[in-house]
């Protein structure tokens, strides 16, 4: 009956489910501390934040929209959603990934410094990627590029050998497809 004592008294980790990436859209009151609540929830409970963007989207009602890309097992993703929903200033939590293949875009500003061949190649690639030149001198470009995560990643990789010195990215903004609104 009284089985030998376990070598450790700490409970074993729960069984492995595989992690998925989800994009959540969270509508919140634009009040002081609300972002801290959201971020604190993620760090306090050990959830991942892969990308986070926030801005007031409805000025009259002082509502901000936070877009969070996170990874976790299905059970963890469900937890994240209900934990978010439980925060008092949160109006709505929508899992855009569940609704189906959301539109996701990111904007990046990319500074490339160089001369000669490399400079020409950078400009050529920028055109192919539909990146805009928003600042330039004879020795540098600043490109503005918008698109899906992959496209931006790819562009940044290509710029690396061509004199990339600085990248600034917005994080992902996302919206569901079709005429349905949040």
């Amino acid at each position: 009956m009284n089985a030998p004592l376990p070598s450790t008294h700490y409970p074993a980790a729960t069984g492995a489910q595989s992690a998925e990436s989800h994009t959540l859209s969270v509508l919140v009151d634009n009040e002081p501390g609300v972002l801290a609540r959201v971020i604190g929830l993620f760090s306090g409970r050990g959830y991942n934040i892969d990308s986070l963007t926030v801005s007031e989207t409805e000025h009259q009602s002082h509502l901000s929209r936070i877009t969070i890309v996170t990874t976790g097992t299905p059970m963890v993703i469900e937890q994240i959603k209900s934990q978010l929903d439980r925060l008092v200033p949160i109006h709505d939590v929508t899992d855009l990934t569940v609704a189906g293949n959301p539109l996701e875009r990111e904007l990046a500003l990319i500074k490339v410094v160089g001369k000669g061949e490399k400079r020409v190649e950078a400009l050529r690639l920028a055109e192919a990627f539909r990146a805009q030149v928003i600042d330039a001198s004879t020795e540098h470009f600043v490109f503005e590029i918008t698109g899906r995560l992959n496209k931006i990643e790819q562009f940044v990789t290509l710029m690396q050998p061509l004199g990339l010195v600085e990248v600034s990215r917005t994080g992902i903004a996302a919206i569901g497809r079709g005429q349905e609104a949040m």
Partner: peptide
């Protein structure tokens, strides 16, 4: 131990806090 907790039961859970479920 979670994986040995009431292994054979079908579970009903009543709670006011959705984050307690699952």
């Amino acid at each position: 131990r979670l994986d040995a907790f009431s292994p054979g039961s079908t579970k009903i859970h009543i709670d006011i806090d959705p984050s307690s479920i699952n």
